[in-house]
Structure formats: structure tokens, C-alpha cells
């Protein structure tokens, strides 16, 4: 028998919760896994998690909105976070930022229409000695130049085409 999409999602969320345990202290790891699975933590997921942990949905919402790396709305397959803090700023982040804007055709905070890329600012990512630096999902890129931006983006596009490939390889 075919289950509905919602039932499927609940089953997935349940599996995640069972793995981490039904306790409040597991909330953030649970949310991180749900987000990894679904690219966002929507109302439905927040409600389901709150039910399972026996807390008010507002508590879950409060946590999701507090942390920069937890998101209610859908992000692109690749979230690009360019460090905007001082050392990367000194090292030339503005030129990199412009190149990213131009090549992706979006502003910071935006997602491309094809759902591939989200562009965001990050506060210091701890690569101050190798700036300008950016993160693509969990991967870090250092000494980024406007020329390198193109390589990084095309590597992402290739990884996207490979369907399921995680690592972005810059050639």
C-alpha cells in the first residue's frame, strides 16, 4: 500500500528521533539531520518534532530561527557562505562577493531559480590566515579569487549533475 507523502515524512522524522533519543537535549542534532534530509525545517517537521519531544512547537521554532545554520525555508543544493569578517575583508572579499553576485545572478540572501545555489554572508569562519574564504555546504575554500569563483561554481554544477555526489572537486 502506498503511504502518503506526509506519512513518509513522519516516518523519516521518527527514524531520526529514534537515533538521537527523545530528549530535549537532542533537539538540535535532530533538527540538523532533518535539515540535511529535506534541505529545510518546515512547519510540518517542527510540529512533528515538537509532538514527539513533548514540547510546544514554538520552542522548536525559537531554536530554528536562532541559529544561522538552521533554516525554515528551502535553500539551494549548494549553500555558499562567504566570510565577511575583518581579515577576509582586508584580503579582498568584496571582489569575490561581486563575482559571486554576477556569476549567480542573485543577491546575498537569495537562491537561484533552478534551486542549485543559495548565496549568504557568514561571520568569521576561522580561516583568517587564508582569506578570502568561503564555505560550500560543509566544505571550505580558501584564498578565493574572482577567477576561482568560476571554478568553484562549475565544480558544484558538475557535482549536481552527478546526482548524489557530495564532494565538490575543483579542477
Amino acid at each position: 500500500m502506498l503511504s502518503t507523502q506526509q506519512e513518509q515524512r513522519v516516518a523519516e522524522i521518527d527514524a531520526i528521533i529514534e537515533r538521537h533519543g527523545r530528549s530535549r537535549s537532542a533537539l538540535i542534532p535532530i533538527l540538523q539531520d532533518v535539515q540535511r534530509r529535506h534541505d529545510a525545517i518546515g512547519d510540518f517537521a517542527m510540529q512533528a518534532i515538537a509532538d514527539r519531544l513533548g514540547i510546544h512547537p514554538v520552542e522548536v521554532y525559537g531554536v530554528v530561527t536562532f541559529y544561522a545554520f538552521l533554516n525554515e525555508d528551502c535553500r539551494g543544493r549548494f549553500v555558499i557562505r562567504l566570510c565577511r569578517t575583518i581579515s577576509c575583508d582586508l584580503a579582498g572579499r568584496d571582489a569575490v562577493a561581486n563575482q559571486l553576485r554576477n556569476d549567480l545572478g542573485i543577491e546575498f540572501g537569495g537562491t537561484t531559480a533552478d534551486g542549485r545555489f543559495t548565496l549568504e554572508w557568514a561571520n568569521c569562519i576561522g580561516m583568517c590566515d587564508q582569506g578570502p574564504a568561503l564555505l560550500v555546504n560543509d566544505q571550505v575554500f580558501t584564498h578565493v579569487t574572482p577567477e576561482k569563483v568560476h571554478d568553484i561554481l562549475s565544480a558544484c554544477t558538475r557535482a549536481f549533475g552527478l546526482h548524489g555526489a557530495q564532494e565538490v572537486q575543483v579542477r
Binding site: 530535549r24 540538523q32 545554520f69
Partner: peptide, 21 residues
């Protein structure tokens, strides 16, 4: 794993975060 919040480096905020808040 933290989830992107500088203030969580402050020890009591870090504990709040560990407790799922």
C-alpha cells in the same frame, strides 16, 4: 555540532545550546 551562533561560545549560552535551546 554547533549550528552557527557566535554567542554559543559563551559558556552558559553553550550549555543552553547543548540542552537544545
Amino acid at each position: 555540532m554547533g549550528a552557527g551562533a557566535y554567542v554559543c561560545g559563551e559558556e552558559t549560552a553553550l550549555i543552553e545550546s547543548l540542552e537544545g535551546r
